[in-house]
Simulated scan of single mutants.
Amino acid sequence: MESLILSFVEYLKQFGYIGIVLALTFEFVPAELVLPLAGYWVYEGDLNFWGTVFAGTLGGTFGPLTLYALGRFGGRPFLEKYGKYVFIREKEINAADDFFHKYGAGVAFFGRFLPGVRTTISVPCGMAKMNVWIFSVYTFLAMFPITAFYVYLGEKFGPKWKEAGPMVKEYMLPVAAVIIVVLALFFLFKYQKSRKLRNG
C-alpha cells in the first residue's frame, strides 16, 4: 500500500506545490509519508521550504474538510456503512466522538496533535454542525506547526527522510504541550492588556 501511495505522490510532484496540496486533500494519503518526502524534495533543491509548508498546511486543511462534510451531510449511519472505504472504522469514530463531546470545538485544533483521533476528529465536528470557517481556521492553525516540523525533518534527514515520520509521532504530544502553553500565555497577556485599558 505504501509503495502505491508513494508512486501516486511522486506522480503529483510534477505539479509542484499544487501536487502537495492535492496529495494531502486525499485523507487516505498519510501526511507522515507525504510531508517528509516533500522535505526531501526541499533538500534536493526542487522546492522552497516555506512554499512547501504552506502547500502542506493548505492540503492538510482541505483533507479534513472532506471528512467534516461526510460527517455533516452523511451523518453517523453513512460513515458506519461506508467509512471503511476511506479507512475510517467505527472504533475510530467512537473515539473521536467521545473526544469531541468531552472537549468541545477546540478539538478541531488540539485533536490534530493526538494519534488515534487526529484524522477522524473532523467527523464529529461535521456531525455537530460546527461552523465550517471556525473549523477551517482551527485546522489550519494546528496543521501549520505539524507540517513545518515534518518538512523540516524531511529536509534535515535528506535521503533518510522515511525516519522523520516515526520521530514526529514520538514528539507530537510534547510539541502540542508547548504550543498550548504559548497560546495560553498569549491570551493571558491580551486579557491583562485589555483589562488595564478598561480600568484606565
Rank of each mutant, 00 (worst) to 15 (best):
V9R: 03
E10V: 07
Y11M: 13
Y11C: 02
Q14H: 06
F15P: 01
F15R: 04
Y17I: 03
L24G: 04
L24P: 02
T25S: 14
T25D: 09
E27T: 14
L33M: 11
V34G: 05
P36H: 02
P36L: 04
V42E: 00
E44Y: 00
G51L: 03
T52P: 00
T52W: 01
A55R: 06
T57G: 15
L58K: 05
F62D: 05
P64Q: 04
T66E: 10
G71V: 01
R72G: 11
F73M: 06
G74K: 10
G75M: 09
F78H: 05
E80V: 08
E80L: 14
Y82N: 10
G83Y: 01
Y85N: 08
V86P: 00
V86M: 05
E90M: 08
N94R: 12
D97Y: 14
H101Q: 14
H101L: 11
K102Y: 11
Y103D: 07
G104N: 14
G104H: 13
V107A: 06
F109Y: 11
F110D: 08
R112T: 00
R112H: 07
P115M: 13
V117C: 06
R118K: 09
R118P: 03
T119S: 07
S122H: 03
S122R: 02
P124T: 02
A128E: 12
V132W: 06
V137E: 02
Y138F: 15
Y138C: 13
F140E: 05
F140N: 04
A142Q: 03
A142G: 15
F144K: 06
F144A: 15
I146Q: 12
A148P: 01
L153C: 09
K156N: 11
K156S: 10
K156R: 15
P159N: 09
K160A: 15
K160H: 13
K162A: 12
A164F: 04
G165R: 00
V168M: 09
V168N: 02
M172V: 11
M172A: 15
L173P: 00
V175S: 10
V175Q: 04
V175A: 14
A176Q: 08
A177Q: 08
A177K: 05
V178H: 06
I179T: 05
I180D: 09
A184C: 09
F187P: 02
F189G: 06
K190E: 13
Q192H: 12
